[in-house]
């Protein structure tokens, strides 16, 4: 056999397999892996198009630019917000409020026109005045002190000294925008807190010291009336945010 001219066969059984042609059994073993790969790519594509969940930053901005966290109802503290407003912006706004004596005659003559010019409203809501003035106490009862207004002949206004309700201070002061708050419930809670501050810081002084004949200066908010009563009736019933005896 050693001297034989026989040409050796290529790819004999004893030779190692060629890399480009795996055995049939191994090729069959790779098919499931290929199939899984295709399925994974397909599922990944589907997940990309239709994700099962979204990961978002906690500080994502709300529609009005405020952070989502700050807009959460739980983050809103009506008492603290009201106190901050009371101690800063509201005092400054009271100094800037128009003198009622300057448009009292116009308000009595044409309440609707005066309201359009001097009152303000949130959205399509109720309109309120924010005014200041001074005068002499001419009468008082359990809930009101009536004042003859300086500089406006025969004009009576009233300051409320009983329990304070509603949105007159919140909406009348012109400092607050409903859309800066998480919702109407929180905005309403703020109104109640502002009323509490009025009852705590302003009304006691008026109730205790504003006897008939006393002179007083004030700033306050009142709903814009649709009609006004006779000369003996208060032109406005104000919720005082500032009051001091002169």
């Amino acid at each position: 056999m050693a001297g034989s001219n026989e040409i050796p066969k290529v790819g004999r059984v004893s030779d190692p397999p060629l890399p480009s042609s795996p055995p049939r059994a191994e090729r069959a073993g790779q098919r499931p892996a290929l199939l899984i790969g295709v399925v994974v790519v397909a599922v990944a594509g589907l997940l990309w198009a239709f994700p099962l969940f979204h990961v978002r930053p906690l500080q994502a901005s709300g529609a009005d630019g405020k952070s989502a966290a700050s807009l959460a109802a739980g983050a809103f503290d009506p008492a603290a917000t009201a106190l901050r407003l009371w101690q800063t912006d509201l005092r400054a706004a009271a100094q800037r409020a128009p003198e009622l004596k300057n448009f009292a005659a116009q308000l009595r003559a044409d309440p609707a026109a005066a309201g359009r010019k001097f009152a303000s409203a949130a959205g399509l809501g109720t309109a309120y005045y924010f005014v200041r003035g001074s005068g002499r106490v001419v009468a008082r009862d359990r809930n009101q002190v009536k004042i003859a207004l300086d500089g406006a002949e025969a004009t009576i206004v009233a300051l409320r000294i009983g329990p304070v309700f509603g949105n007159a201070v919140r909406d009348g002061c012109g400092l607050l925008e409903v859309n800066a708050f998480p919702g109407l419930q929180e905005f309403n809670a703020l109104a109640a807190e502002l009323n509490t501050l009025v009852e705590k810081h302003v009304i006691p002084t008026v109730r205790e010291k504003a006897d008939v004949g006393a002179r007083i200066q004030f700033a306050g908010c009142a709903g814009a009336p649709e009609t006004v009563g006779g000369p003996d009736e208060p032109l406005l019933v104000l919720i005082p945010v500032e009051a001091s005896l002169l």
Binding site: V43, L47, P51, L52, V55, A60
Partner: peptide, 27 residues
């Protein structure tokens, strides 16, 4: 180990998909 690759790939895809910008975000 090789059998874990598809599962890992799936999880990674899921996370990438979750982190992509959502159409429901305000912007």
């Amino acid at each position: 180990l090789p059998r874990l690759f598809p599962l890992t790939g799936l999880l990674v895809s899921l996370l990438f998909a979750a982190c992509k910008p959502s159409a429901s975000t305000p912007s």
